[in-house]
Design a protein around this nucleic acid. Structure first.
Lengths: 224, 224
DNA sequence: CGGGTTCTTGACTATCTTCAACGAAAGTGG
DNA sequence: CCACTTTCGTTGAAGATAGTCAAGAACCCG
Protein backbone atom coordinates (compact mmCIF):
# COMPACT_ATOMS: atom_id res chain seq x y z
CA UNK A 1 0.00 0.00 0.00
CA UNK A 2 1.24 3.40 -0.90
CA UNK A 3 -0.16 6.62 0.33
CA UNK A 4 -1.71 8.11 -2.70
CA UNK A 5 -3.26 11.50 -2.80
CA UNK A 6 -6.57 10.84 -1.14
CA UNK A 7 -9.58 12.10 -3.00
CA UNK A 8 -13.34 12.02 -2.82
CA UNK A 9 -13.28 10.09 -6.06
CA UNK A 10 -13.00 6.60 -4.67
CA UNK A 11 -10.53 4.84 -6.90
CA UNK A 12 -11.38 1.36 -8.12
CA UNK A 13 -11.15 -0.80 -5.06
CA UNK A 14 -7.56 -1.89 -5.22
CA UNK A 15 -8.67 -5.08 -3.57
CA UNK A 16 -8.57 -6.60 -7.00
CA UNK A 17 -9.92 -10.08 -6.58
CA UNK A 18 -7.48 -11.92 -8.76
CA UNK A 19 -9.25 -14.74 -10.54
CA UNK A 20 -11.04 -16.55 -7.83
CA UNK A 21 -11.54 -19.27 -10.39
CA UNK A 22 -7.95 -20.30 -9.85
CA UNK A 23 -7.89 -23.18 -7.47
CA UNK A 24 -6.93 -21.61 -4.17
CA UNK A 25 -4.44 -24.31 -3.50
CA UNK A 26 -1.49 -23.76 -1.25
CA UNK A 27 -2.32 -20.65 0.76
CA UNK A 28 0.66 -19.60 2.82
CA UNK A 29 0.54 -18.42 6.39
CA UNK A 30 3.01 -16.04 7.94
CA UNK A 31 3.24 -15.37 11.66
CA UNK A 32 3.74 -11.94 13.16
CA UNK A 33 7.36 -10.95 12.81
CA UNK A 34 8.23 -13.73 10.38
CA UNK A 35 10.03 -12.88 7.19
CA UNK A 36 8.61 -13.77 3.79
CA UNK A 37 11.78 -12.89 1.89
CA UNK A 38 14.91 -10.81 2.09
CA UNK A 39 16.52 -8.33 -0.24
CA UNK A 40 18.70 -10.22 -2.68
CA UNK A 41 16.75 -13.48 -2.51
CA UNK A 42 15.87 -14.95 -5.88
CA UNK A 43 12.17 -14.53 -6.55
CA UNK A 44 10.19 -17.72 -6.88
CA UNK A 45 6.78 -16.50 -5.87
CA UNK A 46 4.69 -13.40 -5.81
CA UNK A 47 2.11 -13.14 -3.09
CA UNK A 48 -1.28 -11.58 -2.82
CA UNK A 49 -2.14 -10.60 0.72
CA UNK A 50 -5.41 -12.21 1.78
CA UNK A 51 -5.37 -11.05 5.39
CA UNK A 52 -2.91 -9.43 7.75
CA UNK A 53 -0.38 -6.72 7.00
CA UNK A 54 3.11 -7.00 5.52
CA UNK A 55 5.97 -4.56 5.74
CA UNK A 56 8.45 -4.01 2.90
CA UNK A 57 11.67 -2.34 3.92
CA UNK A 58 15.02 -1.37 2.56
CA UNK A 59 18.16 -0.52 4.45
CA UNK A 60 20.82 2.05 3.63
CA UNK A 61 24.35 1.15 4.65
CA UNK A 62 24.47 3.79 7.39
CA UNK A 63 21.49 2.23 9.12
CA UNK A 64 18.91 4.54 7.69
CA UNK A 65 15.79 2.67 6.74
CA UNK A 66 12.97 3.26 4.33
CA UNK A 67 9.68 1.45 4.60
CA UNK A 68 8.85 1.01 0.94
CA UNK A 69 5.27 -0.08 1.41
CA UNK A 70 2.79 -1.82 3.64
CA UNK A 71 1.10 -4.85 2.14
CA UNK A 72 -2.61 -4.82 2.88
CA UNK A 73 -5.23 -7.33 1.76
CA UNK A 74 -5.53 -7.15 -2.01
CA UNK A 75 -1.96 -5.95 -2.50
CA UNK A 76 0.57 -8.01 -4.40
CA UNK A 77 4.14 -8.09 -3.18
CA UNK A 78 7.37 -9.55 -4.43
CA UNK A 79 7.77 -8.22 -7.94
CA UNK A 80 11.20 -9.27 -9.14
CA UNK A 81 13.84 -7.03 -10.66
CA UNK A 82 16.41 -9.05 -12.55
CA UNK A 83 14.96 -12.04 -10.80
CA UNK A 84 15.72 -10.83 -7.30
CA UNK A 85 13.80 -9.37 -4.41
CA UNK A 86 14.81 -5.82 -3.75
CA UNK A 87 13.24 -5.36 -0.33
CA UNK A 88 12.93 -7.29 2.88
CA UNK A 89 9.41 -8.35 3.70
CA UNK A 90 7.99 -9.39 7.05
CA UNK A 91 4.59 -9.62 8.69
CA UNK A 92 3.31 -6.94 11.06
CA UNK A 93 0.41 -9.19 11.93
CA UNK A 94 -0.27 -12.79 11.09
CA UNK A 95 -1.00 -12.98 7.39
CA UNK A 96 -2.58 -15.33 4.91
CA UNK A 97 -1.02 -15.19 1.47
CA UNK A 98 -1.90 -16.51 -1.93
CA UNK A 99 1.31 -17.36 -3.77
CA UNK A 100 1.68 -17.13 -7.53
CA UNK A 101 4.60 -18.53 -9.47
CA UNK A 102 7.01 -15.96 -10.78
CA UNK A 103 6.75 -17.67 -14.16
CA UNK A 104 3.06 -16.82 -14.28
CA UNK A 105 3.95 -13.15 -14.31
CA UNK A 106 6.98 -13.39 -16.52
CA UNK A 107 6.08 -16.09 -19.00
CA UNK A 108 2.33 -16.38 -18.71
CA UNK A 109 2.76 -20.09 -18.15
CA UNK A 110 -0.47 -21.93 -17.99
CA UNK A 111 -2.86 -19.21 -16.95
CA UNK A 112 -3.08 -16.22 -19.31
CA UNK A 113 -5.76 -14.51 -17.22
CA UNK A 114 -3.58 -14.67 -14.16
CA UNK A 115 -0.61 -13.43 -16.15
CA UNK A 116 -2.76 -10.48 -17.20
CA UNK A 117 -3.85 -9.77 -13.66
CA UNK A 118 -0.31 -9.84 -12.28
CA UNK A 119 0.95 -7.62 -15.06
CA UNK A 120 -1.79 -5.09 -14.41
CA UNK A 121 -0.94 -5.18 -10.72
CA UNK A 122 2.66 -4.36 -11.55
CA UNK A 123 1.58 -1.43 -13.70
CA UNK A 124 -0.71 -0.12 -10.99
CA UNK A 125 2.19 -0.44 -8.59
CA UNK A 126 4.22 1.92 -10.75
CA UNK A 127 1.47 4.49 -10.69
CA UNK A 128 0.97 4.18 -6.95
CA UNK A 129 4.67 4.65 -6.34
CA UNK A 130 4.62 7.82 -8.38
CA UNK A 131 1.92 9.17 -6.11
CA UNK A 132 4.11 8.36 -3.18
CA UNK A 133 6.88 10.45 -4.71
CA UNK A 134 4.72 13.54 -4.26
CA UNK A 135 4.24 12.53 -0.71
CA UNK A 136 7.90 12.11 0.10
CA UNK A 137 9.14 15.02 -1.92
CA UNK A 138 6.58 17.71 -1.61
CA UNK A 139 4.49 17.34 1.52
CA UNK A 140 4.91 18.69 5.03
CA UNK A 141 4.82 16.47 8.10
CA UNK A 142 1.19 17.16 8.82
CA UNK A 143 0.19 16.61 5.21
CA UNK A 144 2.04 13.32 5.20
CA UNK A 145 0.48 12.04 8.39
CA UNK A 146 -2.99 13.25 7.39
CA UNK A 147 -2.63 11.58 3.97
CA UNK A 148 -1.50 8.38 5.58
CA UNK A 149 -4.49 8.28 7.90
CA UNK A 150 -6.89 9.18 5.10
CA UNK A 151 -5.69 6.39 2.86
CA UNK A 152 -5.81 3.85 5.66
CA UNK A 153 -9.28 5.02 6.57
CA UNK A 154 -10.43 4.53 3.02
CA UNK A 155 -8.84 1.11 2.64
CA UNK A 156 -9.31 -0.53 5.98
CA UNK A 157 -11.28 1.89 8.12
CA UNK A 158 -14.25 0.63 10.08
CA UNK A 159 -17.10 3.06 9.84
CA UNK A 160 -19.44 3.53 12.77
CA UNK A 161 -21.55 6.46 13.92
CA UNK A 162 -19.94 8.90 11.52
CA UNK A 163 -16.52 8.01 12.84
CA UNK A 164 -13.89 5.87 11.21
CA UNK A 165 -11.72 3.60 13.28
CA UNK A 166 -8.39 2.40 12.01
CA UNK A 167 -5.92 -0.10 13.38
CA UNK A 168 -2.24 0.68 13.02
CA UNK A 169 -0.37 -2.60 13.27
CA UNK A 170 2.90 -0.81 12.57
CA UNK A 171 5.02 1.16 15.03
CA UNK A 172 5.53 4.92 14.94
CA UNK A 173 9.02 4.21 13.65
CA UNK A 174 7.52 2.29 10.72
CA UNK A 175 5.21 5.16 9.90
CA UNK A 176 8.12 7.57 10.15
CA UNK A 177 10.29 5.48 7.86
CA UNK A 178 7.44 5.21 5.41
CA UNK A 179 6.75 8.94 5.34
CA UNK A 180 10.32 10.15 5.54
CA UNK A 181 10.00 11.61 9.05
CA UNK A 182 11.27 10.79 12.54
CA UNK A 183 9.25 8.96 15.18
CA UNK A 184 9.18 12.11 17.24
CA UNK A 185 7.65 14.10 14.44
CA UNK A 186 5.03 11.43 13.77
CA UNK A 187 4.17 11.36 17.43
CA UNK A 188 3.98 15.13 17.73
CA UNK A 189 1.87 15.38 14.59
CA UNK A 190 -0.60 12.83 15.88
CA UNK A 191 -0.80 14.71 19.15
CA UNK A 192 -1.47 17.90 17.24
CA UNK A 193 -4.29 16.22 15.32
CA UNK A 194 -5.67 14.91 18.59
CA UNK A 195 -5.58 18.35 20.19
CA UNK A 196 -7.38 19.80 17.15
CA UNK A 197 -10.10 17.21 17.79
CA UNK A 198 -9.62 15.77 14.32
CA UNK A 199 -8.65 12.36 15.62
CA UNK A 200 -8.76 10.47 18.88
CA UNK A 201 -6.02 8.11 19.92
CA UNK A 202 -7.95 5.26 21.42
CA UNK A 203 -4.83 3.33 22.20
CA UNK A 204 -1.44 3.47 20.56
CA UNK A 205 -2.54 1.20 17.74
CA UNK A 206 -6.09 2.41 17.28
CA UNK A 207 -7.03 5.78 15.90
CA UNK A 208 -10.50 7.19 15.48
CA UNK A 209 -11.02 9.80 12.84
CA UNK A 210 -13.60 12.26 14.10
CA UNK A 211 -13.48 14.92 11.42
CA UNK A 212 -12.65 13.18 8.17
CA UNK A 213 -13.20 16.28 6.05
CA UNK A 214 -10.79 18.33 8.11
CA UNK A 215 -8.24 15.55 7.86
CA UNK A 216 -8.66 15.38 4.11
CA UNK A 217 -8.19 19.13 3.93
CA UNK A 218 -4.96 18.90 5.88
CA UNK A 219 -3.71 16.10 3.67
CA UNK A 220 -4.17 18.34 0.65
CA UNK A 221 -2.36 21.25 2.21
CA UNK A 222 -5.18 23.54 3.27
CA UNK A 223 -3.88 25.78 6.04
CA UNK A 224 -5.17 24.18 9.25
CA UNK B 1 16.00 7.81 -15.00
CA UNK B 2 15.86 7.63 -11.29
CA UNK B 3 18.60 8.49 -8.93
CA UNK B 4 19.53 5.22 -7.44
CA UNK B 5 22.10 4.77 -4.77
CA UNK B 6 25.28 5.11 -6.72
CA UNK B 7 27.81 2.38 -6.14
CA UNK B 8 31.10 1.14 -7.46
CA UNK B 9 29.30 -1.96 -8.60
CA UNK B 10 28.21 -0.81 -12.01
CA UNK B 11 24.68 -2.09 -12.41
CA UNK B 12 23.79 -3.82 -15.65
CA UNK B 13 23.77 -1.08 -18.25
CA UNK B 14 20.18 0.02 -18.16
CA UNK B 15 20.59 0.92 -21.78
CA UNK B 16 18.84 -2.30 -22.50
CA UNK B 17 18.95 -2.68 -26.26
CA UNK B 18 15.47 -3.90 -26.79
CA UNK B 19 15.40 -6.36 -29.65
CA UNK B 20 17.18 -4.63 -32.45
CA UNK B 21 15.81 -7.36 -34.64
CA UNK B 22 12.44 -5.64 -34.54
CA UNK B 23 12.10 -3.61 -37.65
CA UNK B 24 12.88 -0.11 -36.49
CA UNK B 25 9.94 1.26 -38.33
CA UNK B 26 8.31 4.50 -37.36
CA UNK B 27 10.81 6.25 -35.11
CA UNK B 28 9.21 9.31 -33.58
CA UNK B 29 10.88 12.67 -33.20
CA UNK B 30 10.04 15.16 -30.51
CA UNK B 31 11.24 18.75 -30.52
CA UNK B 32 12.51 20.55 -27.44
CA UNK B 33 9.57 21.61 -25.33
CA UNK B 34 7.03 19.48 -27.20
CA UNK B 35 4.76 17.19 -25.21
CA UNK B 36 4.63 13.48 -25.84
CA UNK B 37 1.57 12.90 -23.67
CA UNK B 38 -0.36 14.36 -20.79
CA UNK B 39 -1.60 12.93 -17.54
CA UNK B 40 -4.97 11.33 -18.17
CA UNK B 41 -4.38 10.58 -21.84
CA UNK B 42 -5.21 7.03 -22.85
CA UNK B 43 -2.03 5.09 -23.50
CA UNK B 44 -1.54 3.86 -27.04
CA UNK B 45 2.21 3.64 -27.15
CA UNK B 46 5.19 3.16 -24.92
CA UNK B 47 8.42 4.78 -26.01
CA UNK B 48 12.03 3.90 -25.65
CA UNK B 49 14.26 6.95 -25.69
CA UNK B 50 16.89 6.66 -28.40
CA UNK B 51 18.40 10.11 -28.00
CA UNK B 52 17.56 13.31 -26.17
CA UNK B 53 16.08 13.71 -22.71
CA UNK B 54 12.45 13.57 -21.61
CA UNK B 55 10.87 14.97 -18.47
CA UNK B 56 8.01 13.24 -16.66
CA UNK B 57 6.09 15.46 -14.28
CA UNK B 58 3.08 15.45 -12.07
CA UNK B 59 1.21 18.38 -10.63
CA UNK B 60 -0.45 18.75 -7.26
CA UNK B 61 -3.58 20.90 -7.18
CA UNK B 62 -1.88 23.69 -5.23
CA UNK B 63 0.70 24.10 -7.94
CA UNK B 64 3.36 22.01 -6.33
CA UNK B 65 5.14 19.90 -8.85
CA UNK B 66 7.09 16.68 -8.75
CA UNK B 67 9.43 15.64 -11.51
CA UNK B 68 8.85 11.90 -11.49
CA UNK B 69 11.76 10.98 -13.71
CA UNK B 70 14.01 12.06 -16.52
CA UNK B 71 13.93 9.86 -19.58
CA UNK B 72 17.44 9.20 -20.86
CA UNK B 73 18.49 7.04 -23.80
CA UNK B 74 17.63 3.44 -23.00
CA UNK B 75 14.76 4.33 -20.69
CA UNK B 76 11.21 3.36 -21.47
CA UNK B 77 8.43 5.77 -20.66
CA UNK B 78 4.66 5.67 -20.77
CA UNK B 79 3.69 2.62 -18.74
CA UNK B 80 -0.09 2.68 -18.42
CA UNK B 81 -2.08 2.37 -15.21
CA UNK B 82 -5.65 1.39 -15.93
CA UNK B 83 -4.91 2.30 -19.51
CA UNK B 84 -4.03 5.93 -18.79
CA UNK B 85 -0.92 8.02 -18.58
CA UNK B 86 -0.32 9.23 -15.08
CA UNK B 87 2.30 11.87 -15.79
CA UNK B 88 2.89 14.62 -18.29
CA UNK B 89 5.86 14.04 -20.55
CA UNK B 90 7.78 16.58 -22.60
CA UNK B 91 11.20 16.87 -24.16
CA UNK B 92 14.03 18.79 -22.53
CA UNK B 93 16.02 18.42 -25.68
CA UNK B 94 15.08 17.15 -29.11
CA UNK B 95 14.51 13.43 -28.81
CA UNK B 96 14.26 10.38 -31.02
CA UNK B 97 11.86 7.76 -29.75
CA UNK B 98 11.09 4.17 -30.61
CA UNK B 99 7.39 3.58 -30.06
CA UNK B 100 5.94 0.21 -29.01
CA UNK B 101 2.28 -0.62 -29.03
CA UNK B 102 0.67 -0.81 -25.64
CA UNK B 103 -0.78 -4.15 -26.68
CA UNK B 104 2.72 -5.55 -27.04
CA UNK B 105 3.23 -5.00 -23.34
CA UNK B 106 -0.21 -5.97 -22.19
CA UNK B 107 -1.19 -8.78 -24.52
CA UNK B 108 2.10 -9.86 -26.05
CA UNK B 109 0.53 -9.43 -29.47
CA UNK B 110 2.75 -10.56 -32.22
CA UNK B 111 6.15 -10.31 -30.63
CA UNK B 112 6.70 -12.39 -27.48
CA UNK B 113 10.33 -11.32 -27.14
CA UNK B 114 9.33 -7.69 -27.16
CA UNK B 115 6.54 -8.40 -24.70
CA UNK B 116 9.16 -9.96 -22.44
CA UNK B 117 11.50 -7.01 -22.78
CA UNK B 118 8.81 -4.44 -21.99
CA UNK B 119 7.63 -6.43 -19.00
CA UNK B 120 11.15 -6.65 -17.64
CA UNK B 121 11.54 -2.92 -18.16
CA UNK B 122 8.42 -2.34 -16.09
CA UNK B 123 9.76 -4.53 -13.32
CA UNK B 124 13.09 -2.76 -13.32
CA UNK B 125 11.19 0.50 -13.16
CA UNK B 126 9.57 -0.61 -9.91
CA UNK B 127 12.94 -1.38 -8.39
CA UNK B 128 14.47 1.90 -9.53
CA UNK B 129 11.57 3.83 -8.04
CA UNK B 130 12.11 2.13 -4.72
CA UNK B 131 15.68 3.37 -4.73
CA UNK B 132 14.39 6.82 -5.36
CA UNK B 133 12.21 6.54 -2.25
CA UNK B 134 15.35 6.40 -0.14
CA UNK B 135 16.53 9.49 -1.90
CA UNK B 136 13.41 11.52 -1.31
CA UNK B 137 12.70 10.29 2.16
CA UNK B 138 16.02 9.86 3.82
CA UNK B 139 18.70 12.01 2.25
CA UNK B 140 19.90 15.53 2.98
CA UNK B 141 20.15 18.21 0.33
CA UNK B 142 23.82 17.63 -0.30
CA UNK B 143 23.39 13.87 -0.45
CA UNK B 144 20.58 14.29 -2.94
CA UNK B 145 22.48 16.62 -5.22
CA UNK B 146 25.65 14.52 -4.98
CA UNK B 147 23.68 11.35 -5.77
CA UNK B 148 22.04 13.04 -8.70
CA UNK B 149 25.36 14.12 -10.18
CA UNK B 150 26.93 10.70 -9.57
CA UNK B 151 24.16 8.86 -11.34
CA UNK B 152 24.23 11.25 -14.28
CA UNK B 153 28.00 10.92 -14.46
CA UNK B 154 27.71 7.18 -14.60
CA UNK B 155 24.99 7.15 -17.21
CA UNK B 156 25.86 10.01 -19.52
CA UNK B 157 29.11 11.48 -18.26
CA UNK B 158 31.89 12.14 -20.74
CA UNK B 159 35.19 11.08 -19.32
CA UNK B 160 38.33 12.97 -20.17
CA UNK B 161 41.59 13.48 -18.35
CA UNK B 162 40.30 12.03 -15.10
CA UNK B 163 37.38 14.42 -15.11
CA UNK B 164 33.80 13.70 -15.97
CA UNK B 165 31.74 16.25 -17.80
CA UNK B 166 27.96 16.14 -17.65
CA UNK B 167 25.32 18.13 -19.46
CA UNK B 168 22.25 19.16 -17.51
CA UNK B 169 19.52 19.84 -20.03
CA UNK B 170 17.06 20.51 -17.21
CA UNK B 171 16.65 23.69 -15.18
CA UNK B 172 17.51 24.06 -11.52
CA UNK B 173 13.79 24.01 -10.84
CA UNK B 174 13.52 20.63 -12.55
CA UNK B 175 16.34 19.24 -10.44
CA UNK B 176 14.72 20.68 -7.33
CA UNK B 177 11.35 19.17 -8.17
CA UNK B 178 13.00 15.84 -8.86
CA UNK B 179 14.91 15.80 -5.58
CA UNK B 180 12.24 17.35 -3.39
CA UNK B 181 14.12 20.61 -2.78
CA UNK B 182 13.80 24.25 -3.79
CA UNK B 183 15.74 25.86 -6.62
CA UNK B 184 17.58 27.99 -4.11
CA UNK B 185 18.78 24.95 -2.19
CA UNK B 186 19.92 23.22 -5.38
CA UNK B 187 21.79 26.34 -6.41
CA UNK B 188 23.40 26.80 -3.01
CA UNK B 189 24.39 23.15 -2.84
CA UNK B 190 26.04 23.29 -6.25
CA UNK B 191 27.91 26.41 -5.17
CA UNK B 192 29.04 24.60 -2.05
CA UNK B 193 30.34 21.68 -4.12
CA UNK B 194 32.11 24.13 -6.39
CA UNK B 195 33.76 25.91 -3.47
CA UNK B 196 34.93 22.53 -2.12
CA UNK B 197 36.59 21.98 -5.50
CA UNK B 198 34.57 18.82 -6.02
CA UNK B 199 32.89 20.13 -9.13
CA UNK B 200 33.31 23.00 -11.55
CA UNK B 201 30.38 24.77 -13.08
CA UNK B 202 31.53 25.28 -16.63
CA UNK B 203 28.35 26.98 -17.61
CA UNK B 204 24.90 26.71 -16.13
CA UNK B 205 24.16 23.52 -18.01
CA UNK B 206 27.57 21.90 -17.92
CA UNK B 207 29.20 20.51 -14.81
CA UNK B 208 32.63 18.98 -14.51
CA UNK B 209 33.20 16.50 -11.73
CA UNK B 210 36.76 16.93 -10.49
CA UNK B 211 36.74 14.66 -7.47
CA UNK B 212 34.39 11.80 -8.21
CA UNK B 213 35.32 9.84 -5.10
CA UNK B 214 34.58 12.76 -2.83
CA UNK B 215 31.25 13.25 -4.57
CA UNK B 216 30.40 9.59 -4.15
CA UNK B 217 31.27 9.87 -0.48
CA UNK B 218 28.95 12.81 -0.04
CA UNK B 219 26.15 10.99 -1.84
CA UNK B 220 26.41 8.18 0.67
CA UNK B 221 26.35 10.48 3.64
CA UNK B 222 29.97 10.64 4.69
CA UNK B 223 30.53 13.83 6.63
CA UNK B 224 32.17 16.19 4.12
C1' DC C 1 5.08 -7.55 38.94
C1' DG C 2 9.34 -6.02 36.74
C1' DG C 3 12.29 -4.95 32.86
C1' DG C 4 12.63 -3.57 28.28
C1' DT C 5 10.73 -1.42 24.56
C1' DT C 6 7.93 2.04 22.46
C1' DC C 7 5.72 6.40 22.69
C1' DT C 8 5.32 11.13 24.09
C1' DT C 9 6.95 15.57 25.36
C1' DG C 10 10.30 19.36 26.00
C1' DA C 11 14.23 22.22 24.88
C1' DC C 12 17.42 23.21 21.59
C1' DT C 13 19.51 23.12 16.98
C1' DA C 14 20.21 22.42 12.15
C1' DT C 15 18.57 22.34 7.80
C1' DC C 16 15.95 23.88 4.46
C1' DT C 17 12.48 27.23 2.91
C1' DT C 18 10.84 31.82 2.12
C1' DC C 19 11.26 36.36 0.67
C1' DA C 20 13.85 39.60 -1.66
C1' DA C 21 17.29 41.56 -4.58
C1' DC C 22 20.36 41.40 -8.23
C1' DG C 23 23.00 39.64 -12.22
C1' DA C 24 23.24 36.61 -16.19
C1' DA C 25 21.20 34.41 -19.94
C1' DA C 26 17.86 33.86 -23.37
C1' DG C 27 14.01 35.22 -26.14
C1' DT C 28 11.57 39.09 -28.90
C1' DG C 29 10.72 42.59 -31.98
C1' DG C 30 12.16 46.54 -34.22
C1' DC D 1 22.14 43.18 -34.73
C1' DC D 2 20.93 45.56 -30.76
C1' DA D 3 17.88 47.24 -27.11
C1' DC D 4 14.24 45.53 -24.35
C1' DT D 5 11.86 42.21 -21.62
C1' DT D 6 11.49 38.07 -19.33
C1' DT D 7 13.08 34.18 -17.40
C1' DC D 8 16.53 31.77 -14.79
C1' DG D 9 20.19 31.39 -11.50
C1' DT D 10 22.73 33.01 -7.50
C1' DT D 11 23.17 35.03 -3.09
C1' DG D 12 21.77 37.00 1.45
C1' DA D 13 18.99 37.47 5.58
C1' DA D 14 15.33 35.86 8.32
C1' DG D 15 12.18 32.43 9.67
C1' DA D 16 9.90 27.91 9.96
C1' DT D 17 9.84 23.20 9.96
C1' DA D 18 11.57 19.10 11.25
C1' DG D 19 15.57 16.78 13.52
C1' DT D 20 18.38 15.72 17.68
C1' DC D 21 19.06 14.76 22.34
C1' DA D 22 17.18 13.67 26.60
C1' DA D 23 13.87 12.36 30.05
C1' DG D 24 9.79 10.48 31.65
C1' DA D 25 5.31 7.88 30.76
C1' DA D 26 2.82 4.20 28.78
C1' DC D 27 2.75 -0.19 27.12
C1' DC D 28 4.01 -5.02 26.41
C1' DC D 29 5.70 -9.48 27.59
C1' DG D 30 7.33 -12.98 30.18
Amino acid sequence: MYVTIPSEVTPQKSTNPITDKTAQVCETNLKTGAYLFYEGDPVEWLYQVKSGVLRLTRLLENGRRQVIAFGYPGDIVGFPANGLHHTDCDALSGARLQPYRRATLEKGDGDPALHQALLQAALREISAMQDHFMMLGRKSAIEKVASFLCVLAERVGQNAAGETRIELPMSRADIADFLGLTTETVSRTLTQLRKSRIIEIDNIHTIVICRQTALLGLSLGDRD
